[in-house]
Design a protein around this nucleic acid. Structure first.
Length: 283
DNA sequence: CGAGTGCCCTGACAGC
DNA sequence: TGCTGTCAGGGCACTC
């Protein structure tokens, strides 16, 4: 499931390939008409001026004032190699091969559409996206402010992309474990100290995952077809029943907002931590 | 507006 | 072997 590290990995591979090339055509292949694949015809004739990213969204700036927005959803893959099946979009470019970009997306949770640059009315999550985790605008203070007064579980709020952009199910579990925060803790009850730890944890886990080119469970591949290597570094996600790498307690799995959620009941207590436990965790 | 629910969609897998 | 049921979840429409 592509989150920020996976999307950033893809972005870095697309950038040298696509930048400066002109779109010859963009067409739907085995994809229904609809808002997920809107306005593709408008891309033709426009040059790709930049390959950017906001949260989990890829944003290709086009020379005609439009923007190509791509979200990989759960199973989306961008590749120059024609996939055997489930091709949703075929983007033809000028210049030497490889000059066709295929969007393969078996489960069709992804999007691939053209909008006027910055016009995200059809993409409410992107329109209201929180700060980039590596941006100076994302601070412990901004995080705390985004949580204040909210009764919803901290994990649920993070999934909504508002406090910070780019975290999904996997890296939220990892960041909350690193920060020692129970995923069900009402967001408004996160303390200043916890928010500071969560801020640092989000940045550090995303950095580490980018360095590993992301996490591959099943579908995710880089543009070059490689898998992400972060799977082996995950501390909690997918490790329910295993001993916590920090304290040895058996990791638990619960369902929160229809998402599988793994955490350590010892390191991430629902109630406020004691000073003794804070000290223990420092190691 | 905040919070909660259910839908989309298909491959993988368990169970019989 | 082949069928059926269940699970996985990001974003969003919908309801209260």
């Amino acid at each position: 499931m592509p989150e920020l590290p996976e999307v950033e990995t893809v972005r870095r591979e697309l950038e040298p390939w696509l930048t400066g090339r002109t779109v010859l055509s963009a067409r739907r292949v085995a994809a229904p008409a609809g808002p997920k694949y809107a306005n593709l015809a408008r891309a033709a004739g426009q040059r790709v001026e930049a390959v950017g990213r906001r949260g989990k969204f890829l944003l290709l700036a086009l020379s005609g004032g439009d923007e190509l927005v791509i979200h990989l959803g759960m199973t989306g893959v961008l590749t120059p190699e024609r996939p055997r099946d489930h091709v949703r979009i075929e983007l033809r470019l000028d210049g030497p091969p490889p000059n066709v970009l295929y969007f393969r997306d078996p489960r069709r949770f992804g999007r691939f559409l053209v909008v006027p640059a910055g016009d995200y009315r059809s993409l409410p999550t992107l329109a209201a996206l929180g700060p980039e985790p590596f941006d100076a605008a994302f601070t412990a203070g901004s995080l705390l402010a985004a949580l204040r007064g909210r009764r919803v579980a901290i994990k649920t709020l993070l999934l909504a992309q508002r406090p910070v952009a780019g975290l999904g199910n996997i890296y939220i579990d990892e960041a909350l474990w690193r920060a020692g925060i129970h995923p069900k803790l009402p967001a408004g009850r996160v303390t200043r100290a916890q928010a500071a730890r969560l801020h640092d944890a989000a940045i550090s886990v995303l950095r580490a995952a980018i360095d590993a080119q992301g996490t591959t469970f099943s579908d995710y591949r880089t543009v070059n077809g490689a898998v992400g290597d972060y799977l082996g570094y995950l501390d909690v996600y997918g490790h329910a029943g295993d001993p916590c790498r920090r304290c040895g307690t058996k990791l638990r799995r619960i369902v929160l907002g229809a998402r599988g959620t793994c955490f350590c009941p010892q390191c991430q207590p629902y109630a406020r931590k004691t000073a003794e436990m804070r000290t223990k965790r420092r190691t």
